[in-house]
């Protein structure tokens, strides 16, 4: 469904992605982990064209992301994305955050869009906050709204870019619960995260990156039981200690 083939990217002289190849099939949940600066976020942002790349190819359902002929806005509408810092629109109410793109991109009517939005807000347990503005919500609540906003577009896959790393510890669970739920419904997901508990529980595969390269790409249990690279072993021992 999502396919990265030999993707390389440079910022000036610095190579931030080095020949990355990754295939994610329909319904798969793939966790991408690695030390900070290893290129995890950059890689998943190539999947919906938020980050341009210089070499290789990325395709979504057979449509090339980098090609000039591709209608990028239309492609992006099919791929939901959740950001580290939520990125809700602060000038819009929670409900409007969910209806904006539905109306403008999918051309849904006002009532259709808000019905869909309310259903999703109910699902993430925030229906009673629909009239509030993002700044009036806690971090965990904002991130749940952000997930609902992405889902309002009926995406065929979801990208999560460190969705819990900007949250206070007590709010991590409410967000992870929503994601676990989503995975159990068969959503295709690529999740950049350091939440190894989440990875163990729901992911099919774990991808370990370091210095822009994919070092390991293995089924979850194998990755945790017997990581094959010393760098992954070091990373795991550091991250699982706390």
């Amino acid at each position: 469904m999502i396919e990265f083939l030999g993707v390389s990217k440079w910022y000036g002289d610095v190579k931030v992605l080095d020949n990355c190849t990754l295939r994610v099939g329909q319904g798969e949940v793939v966790v991408v982990c690695g030390p900070s600066g290893s290129g995890k976020s950059t890689l998943i942002k190539c999947a919906n064209g938020l980050e341009p790349f210089q070499q290789g190819s990325v395709s979504f359902n057979g449509i090339s992301v980098g090609a000039k002929s591709t209608n990028l806005p239309q492609l992006r509408a099919q791929i939901g994305m959740v950001f580290q810092h939520f990125e809700l629109f602060p000038h819009l109410s929670v409900l409007e955050n969910l209806t904006l793109a539905q109306r403008k991109v999918l051309q849904r009517s006002e009532s259709e869009a808000s019905e869909k939005a309310k259903k999703l807000l109910g699902r993430v347990g925030l229906l009673e906050h629909s009239k509030k503005f993002p700044a009036q919500l806690s971090g965990g609540q904002q991130q749940r709204v952000a997930i609902a906003r992405a889902l309002s577009m009926d995406p065929r896959a979801m990208l999560f870019d460190e969705p819990t790393s900007a949250l206070d510890p007590e709010m991590v669970h409410e967000v992870l619960d929503v994601m676990v739920n989503l995975a159990s419904e068969g959503m295709t997901m690529i999740v950049v995260t350091h939440e190894m508990g989440f990875a163990k529980r729901v992911s099919n595969r774990v991808v370990f990156m370091d210095q822009g390269s994919i070092i390991e790409d293995r089924p979850t249990s194998q990755f945790f039981d017997s990581p094959s690279s010393t760098r992954a072993v070091e990373f795991l021992s550091r991250i699982l200690r706390d």
Partner: peptide
């Protein structure tokens, strides 16, 4: 980025 990711032009 968030607006683009939602498919807005």
């Amino acid at each position: 980025s968030a607006a683009h990711a939602l498919g807005l032009t």
